[in-house]
């Protein structure tokens, strides 16, 4: 097989020569290597205080989007549930009543929308499938919990804050997203 990295070394089964059989020179070489590692930069990130910066294309916990007027974008078309290879999404559709135009963007909306985070593999196919730009994967890790029940995220857990009625929470959620320095927690 052709080597891709040019770094592979064929297995050497030749009997050990005198110096190798003495063990000590070889052991000493190894000790020099470990000693060098003593002074190398450490790979540890002190987690609760420091956080690793997420990649721009990181696929984390889902959010359900709203439009600029604070209306839910999801139209309960079910394409995300269909696209999901893990069958993690379920929803129930409902018809928008008169006077609810400020709540829902389309005439049909998701009355119930659940994602089971234990099933989800964070592949992002739901995000790809959505024709209404309603579901997105954010830069958050799904937090641990004690009960299985708590991993079924309902619509309330997933929806982002309303930009009209809760502008502060919305700004906070948004401001955290793209350009915050996650290693220091400062912007």
């Amino acid at each position: 097989m052709q080597s891709l990295t040019n770094r592979n070394k064929p297995v050497d089964r030749a009997p050990m020569n005198f110096w190798e059989r003495l063990y000590l020179p070889e052991i000493f070489k190894g000790m020099i290597i470990t000693l060098r590692h003593l002074f190398k930069r450490k790979a540890t990130i002190q987690y609760p205080e420091q956080k690793r910066e997420f990649s721009r294309v990181w696929r984390g916990l889902h959010v359900l989007n709203r439009d600029e007027e604070g209306r839910e974008r999801c139209t309960a078309c079910g394409l995300c549930a269909l696209a999901c290879p893990a069958e993690a999404i379920t929803m129930e559709a409902a018809e928008r009543e008169l006077g609810e135009e400020n709540l829902y963007r389309e005439e049909k909306y998701a009355a119930k929308y659940e994602i089971n985070m234990l099933r989800c593999i964070f592949c992002g196919l739901c995000e790809e499938a959505c024709p209404k730009d309603a579901v997105y994967l954010s830069e958050t890790v799904a937090p641990a919990d004690y009960a299985r029940k708590k991993f079924i995220y309902t619509k309330e857990d997933l929806l982002i804050p309303n930009p009209v009625t809760e502008p502060e929470a919305y700004a906070k959620a948004k401001g955290l997203e793209p350009n915050e320095n996650r290693l220091t927690g400062k912007r």
Binding site: H37, K40, Q46
Partner: peptide, 10 residues
């Protein structure tokens, strides 16, 4: 500590 340092940990 020594084990950690030699394995590039803290």
């Amino acid at each position: 500590k020594v084990a950690a340092w030699m394995q590039d940990r803290i």
